[in-house]
Simulated assay, not measured.
Amino acid sequence: MKFKRLNVEDIHINLTPLIDCLLFILVFLLLSTTFSQSSRINLTLPDAQGVPPKQYDQKVEVMVDSTGHYAVNGQALASKEAADLGMAIKQATRDQKDLIFVIAADAKATHQDVIRVMDIAGQLGFVNINISTKVPTRGY
């Protein structure tokens, strides 16, 4: 008796859809990933426990009020724009990057306004940044 053999077709795995899916995942990950750089700003946060203030010959003081307006060395700026603040700091420092940079912010100033000043100072190359504080009064 002669049995007929079944012809079994070879199984072929098509990898093209798998490669397409992997490429989509790779592109998605590349587009959604943020590359963070380490901070290049050295901050000196002063203590508010009665440390006497230091007097510096030359410094740049940027004041931030509660509404987000800026003043550089006592000169108020007309706008809240970062570009105007950067130009005012450049004019006040005459490209001297080794000056003491002091940020004096109102207690009700937003965090964004203070960070904007720090960011511009870092972009301009300042490395000695101080945040001024007020020594609290003691009511004994």
Rank of each mutant, 00 (worst) to 15 (best):
I100W: 04
G122E: 10
D106G: 04
T93I: 09
V102K: 05
A92F: 06
A82F: 04
A105W: 00
Q112P: 02
Q96L: 10
K90T: 13
I115S: 13
T110F: 03
A105C: 01
L85T: 01
D119A: 09
V117E: 04
A104K: 10
V102T: 05
A83W: 09
D95A: 13
V102D: 03
T110V: 12
G122F: 02
D95T: 11
D106T: 08
L85N: 01
D119H: 07
A121P: 01
T93Q: 02
R94Q: 15
A83T: 15
V102W: 00
I89P: 00
G122S: 10
A109N: 03
E81F: 07
A105K: 03
D106N: 09
D95C: 06
E81N: 09
A109M: 01
K80F: 05
R116I: 07
G86A: 15
L99H: 06
Q112R: 14
L99E: 07
R116L: 13
R116K: 14
A107L: 11
K97G: 08
E81M: 07
D98R: 07
A83N: 12
D113F: 06
G86I: 10
I89H: 01
H111M: 10
K90A: 11
M118L: 11
A83Y: 05
A82D: 11
K90R: 15
Q91H: 07
A121K: 04
A88R: 00
G86P: 02
A121D: 03
L99Q: 08
V102H: 02
G86T: 15
A107M: 09
A105E: 02
R94H: 13
K90G: 08
Q96V: 14
V117G: 03
D119Q: 10
D113N: 10
T110S: 12
L85M: 02
E81W: 03
A88F: 02
K80H: 08
A109S: 08
I115M: 13
I115Q: 13
A121I: 07
Q112A: 15
R94T: 14
A121T: 02
A105T: 03
H111P: 00
L85G: 01
A104D: 07
M87F: 12
A105Y: 02
A105P: 00
A92D: 08
I89C: 00
K97Q: 15
D119T: 15
V117Y: 04
V117T: 11
H111I: 11
F101M: 03
I89T: 00
I120Q: 06
V102S: 06
M118H: 01
V114P: 01
T93W: 06
F101K: 00
D106I: 08
Q91I: 07
I120F: 04
I120E: 08
A121L: 04
I115H: 13
H111E: 14
T93C: 09
D84F: 01
A88S: 05
K97F: 05
K90H: 07
A121W: 04
D106W: 05
K97E: 10
L85E: 00
A92K: 12
T93E: 03
A107W: 08
D98W: 01
A92M: 09
D98F: 05
I100F: 05
K108Y: 10
R116W: 01
K90V: 12
I89F: 00
D98G: 05
I120R: 06
D95P: 06
D119N: 09
